[in-house]
Design a protein around this nucleic acid. Structure first.
Length: 428
RNA sequence: GUGAAUGUAGCUCAGUUGGUUAGAGCACCGGAUUGUGGAUCCGGGGGUCGGGGGUUCGAGUCCCCUCUUUCACCCCA
């Protein structure tokens, strides 16, 4: 009986594994050079953990099950709750700020579509304990630092940045009641996705005031922080939020990623728990879903039973990223080697197999990758196999061995020389 | 969860209005007088045509159901 792979999962054959490692290694290097430490947690947690942050509706969006002790568990759909739990558990022992990263494998029980599978990897970086846009700037910088290092230019990707705090203050400023905000956010978040007239229609239904709708529409389409004060008179709270985001853009410019960053009021993020700066990284050419998203979530640790400590972070999945890199020609099939040995030991007859094994074992003990043929096929075959393994050099064992000599052949130049075996090992 | 499209060798696809033992390229394996590689040539293995049911003398081809994949919606942590 043939069993197919599960819907929305991927098999990583060596070439795909090479791609995965390429992405994963880049994430790790970017994290480390930006001063983050790696952590990880279990791949399943109590189901309840995910309900705290996302509500009960989340349950059928994730893989959940009961263990034999009747505990309701779920495979992690995100790692932020685990991070909150881990940090809370040792909050007094951890030196601040906490700058941690992780590349968890996550599962969500959704129907797969372009750039979204049911199992994927997501790079997460978080800074906990810094209530300053400087930390948000660090998060955005690290995100862009990685993308830029891959070869993506400002014309390819942009971080669209806004602020929940600013949005809330502005909406209150124009007279939207505070209790209405939570229902308004998901609608505003859809602005880019809906046709302009549909969006306006829905906004009218929600706000029921023509003048306010007009102001909101004007606000949502501003492309720079400066223009906001042209549209409405700012109260103190809104002014403070505005100054904060201005400051953030100053910092980003100083860090030399200004070209990659734009202010965009329509970035709202669906989730309720964001409290300050929010951002999404988007592809500027195609119509891919967001490459990365993040923001400040100052209440989350408290919601998980810890102290009120501010936090800000970012998540980037591997699916959209891979599509983007392929579209831009920054990742090509066959570009990444899956096979590579330094030495391939060839031999001309079966009596020499012992010598082959001896030499191979010695090289491997010296941490030099080495392979050989399991059959003493003709030399042509063996060199062909060596080439297929991307061997740098071949050692050829033949009659010369009687004088303690081996032939070393450089596979890229084709040059070969006869050397004394003792000398060879001495010079390794 | 809703809707649409798709499914023939490992991969990319041919397959005539239903008609004999279902084909190609690439890949894989093996050979071309056994001590020199990525080429070329020759040969080989491999498919219950996604699965099940139906119509028919006869189904890869037509009908129904189901599964997969893809795309969009919902959602997007």
């Amino acid at each position: 009986m043939k069993i197919p792979p599960v819907k929305g999962t991927r098999d990583f054959y060596p070439p795909q594994m090479a791609v995965h490692n390429f992405i994963n290694d880049g994430w790790k290097r970017a994290s480390i050079r930006n001063g983050f430490e790696e952590y990880d947690g279990p791949i399943f947690e109590y189901l309840k953990m995910y309900q705290i942050k996302s509500g009960d509706e989340i349950v059928d969006q994730l893989f959940n099950f009961k263990d034999r002790g009747d505990r309701h568990l779920a495979i992690r759909p995100e790692i932020t709750p685990t991070l909150a739990r881990m940090v809370n558990q040792q909050i007094n022992a951890l030196s601040k700020p906490i700058k941690w990263f992780s590349v968890p494998r996550l599962c969500r029980a959704e129907r797969p579509q372009k750039g979204r599978l049911r199992e994927f990897y997501q790079w997460n970086i978080d800074i906990i304990g810094i209530d300053d846009v400087l930390a948000d700037a660090e998060i955005i910088f690290t995100t862009i630092d990685y993308l830029r290092q891959l070869g993506l230019k400002p014309a390819d990707v942009k971080a669209k940045i806004s602020s929940r705090k600013l949005l809330a203050a502005l909406l209150c400023n124009i007279g939207i009641p505070e209790e209405k905000l939570d229902s308004l956010y998901p609608l505003l978040d859809k602005k880019a996705k809906l046709p302009a007239d549909t969006f306006e229609e829905l906004l009218k239904e929600n706000v029921c005031d023509g003048a306010k709708v007009k102001t909101i529409l004007d606000l949502m389409s501003v492309d720079s922080v400066e223009k906001i004060s042209d549209i409405i008179n700012l109260n103190q709270e809104a002014q403070a939020a505005l100054d904060e985001i201005k400051h953030l853009f100053d910092l980003l410019a100083v860090m030399d990623i200004g070209e990659y960053c734009v202010f965009d009021m329509s970035i709202v993020r669906g989730l309720a728990y964001y409290t300050g700066v929010v951002f999404e990284v988007h592809d500027m050419v195609g119509d891919l879903r967001a490459i990365a998203g993040g923001g400040r979530y100052d209440n989350l640790l408290r919601d998980f039973g810890g102290p009120a400590i501010s936090a800000t972070g970012m998540g980037m999945g591997d699916c959209v990223l891979e599509i983007l890199l392929r579209q831009r020609g920054l990742l090509k099939d066959g570009q990444l080697q899956t096979r590579k040995v330094e030495f391939f030991v060839a031999y001309v007859n079966d009596e020499l197999l012992k010598n082959v094994l001896e030499i191979t074992a010695r090289l491997r003990q010296a941490d030099i990758s080495t392979s050989f043929s399991y059959k003493a096929q003709n030399l042509k075959k063996q060199l062909k196999q060596a080439a297929a393994l991307n061997a740098e050099k071949c050692i050829i064992l033949g009659d010369e061995l009687e004088q303690g000599q081996i032939v070393i052949k450089d596979m890229s130049t084709g040059e070969q020389s006869c050397v004394d075996m003792g000398e060879f090992f001495k010079n390794l």
